[in-house]
Design a binder for these strands. Sequence first.
DNA 1: CAGTGGTCTAGACCACACG
DNA 2: GTGTGGTCTAGACCACTGA
Lengths: 246, 246
Amino acid sequence: MNHQQPNFDNLSLFQKLQQELARIIEETPAGERLQSEPELASSLGVSRATLREAMRSFEGQGLIRRRQGVGTFVLDHQQNIETGLEVLESIETQARRIGLDVKMGYLDINKIKSDVELAKKLGINENEEAIRISRVIWVAERPAAFLVDTLIPGILEEKDLSDGFTGSVLDLIIKRGKPELSHSKTEVIASPAPSDIAKKMQIQRGDVLLKLDALLFDKTGRMIDYSQSYFIPGFMKFEVIRSIGK
Amino acid sequence: MNHQQPNFDNLSLFQKLQQELARIIEETPAGERLQSEPELASSLGVSRATLREAMRSFEGQGLIRRRQGVGTFVLDHQQNIETGLEVLESIETQARRIGLDVKMGYLDINKIKSDVELAKKLGINENEEAIRISRVIWVAERPAAFLVDTLIPGILEEKDLSDGFTGSVLDLIIKRGKPELSHSKTEVIASPAPSDIAKKMQIQRGDVLLKLDALLFDKTGRMIDYSQSYFIPGFMKFEVIRSIGK
DNA sequence: CAGTGGTCTAGACCACACG
DNA sequence: GTGTGGTCTAGACCACTGA
């Protein structure tokens, strides 16, 4: 049995397969299920491993969704949420503005003792308790973001989060009116999805995510929140104006 | 033969393997070669496929580099280049400021006929010729970025690029003094590395890259350049200040 | 329970670097 | 030529879903 074809045209089997897959996905109506992986692999003449590898990028682009035990489905074309990065605004606010439905999925609220690293980042003492809020944000019936906020003590209590919390720590603090928020210092990172986050977002471990790592400051210059936000590409569009000689 | 262990502790073999690998990489002096993949796989008791999957993230973090035909090497800890995203500045300028060595690797200059899409993006006529400049930027002896600029006609000629071009279209235009540059409208994207780019950057296809997609404007408001920049994570640190209610 | 996607294995061959 | 990483295959078992 021949285990690999020579690579004559400098186009990998993988690339050709992607073109084939793109066609198949395009021709499949939104919401429909694709053939099962073994069937597809066989009909395309490749192994399941290669097929799955090629499928990954389409899932990253938000064109398909694979669901264990169910099947692989073609998604309908999504509406982009466009955001100027310079403006600090919750994904919820952004999505609602263009009329998209927003829901909170999984929610986990914890008190955590800060280790050396976290204490340093938050500017609090070691072993002091911080509140950590993790949740998945669904937009238009699909997971769009995974958000983790770690707040210094005294900003929010658990009761603040028990009723009426819709997913945005930012909006909640703004609504309460204090502390008065000023700005965030945000680092932009590309990151493969860790296993635990991938599972909650219904994507594959290693899929590409855009991550915003932010430190949130109030108007007195005090840092109050360390926030980590993971976004599925193709869903949000982050833009920034860069100027010469600023 | 047992083909897969039950997942008792909810920690995948993959995750345990990553911890093991992290230890091995940590204990290996910078510049040293690791065992070959078959050796490592065997000594860790996993298949080569699983080992390679686990290695990917370390390569993405810039901790190791795999080189076909040579081996896998542990890199020394790199210095970060920190950049405020609001400022439009070449990676070359940024790197030199903190004393890092910058070189241009692969360089390709082409005239291309613009198709409908490109013409629309650049604001020129279909079939008009644009200049496309692709190159790899090495920082501190390692590929750090892959840059593609597509310029409207009349901005730069090929002779401008034949001598003294060090990799930055931005710096070159600034040096020539005209047109006078103003700002860029930049979209921030997380993207898996396409095969061709991965090869030139000496990383693996599918590795995570941070991509900046920018439209560059001069002071008259004319768009002159569409630039695509791919960055290896962990190398550049992009920051932006986000403000409330702007 | 049957059927789906998720993970992993063992082994083959290809492409590349270096002596 | 020898040895490395790069790609692909065939097939096994695991984990999950829904009937």
